[in-house]
Amino acid sequence: MNDKNKIIIGLILFFVFMTLPFWYNMGKAAPVPETKLTEKAKLAKECVKPKEVMRAEHMQLLDTWRDSVVRDADRVYINEKGKKFGMSLSTGDDSCMGCHSNKADFCDKCHNYASVREYCWDCHIEPPEPPKEKK
């Protein structure tokens, strides 16, 4: 029973330590970012799949794409509506970045917010940032 104090102090320390990330970030909640679309993307209206699907599952799509391109050399994707896409992240006008050429606004914003590092760019070469659109 002598250890009662020690145990309580230990528990408090444990609690503070475990919840440290919450304390650390308190009051710093950033607003959910909005992705910006390029003019080209706006004009196209629709991506490979509906917006909601792309938003939630783009990595699954990219994952199947890279397997099919790298392993089977199948490089053309025809979606449900019959539209053709080049199955490439950053090569060609019909690739992902061909349309979404604004990586900073399109990719990085959300990825930074969610703290998910896109290591795609360790190898794939980023498209040059488009000139700033006039306001």
């Binding site: 199948d74 053309v76 994707y77």
Partner: peptide
Amino acid sequence: SEEHKAEIQKKPEA
């Protein structure tokens, strides 16, 4: 139907 399944192909010039 107009809608068909998504397809993956080789480029014709491959």
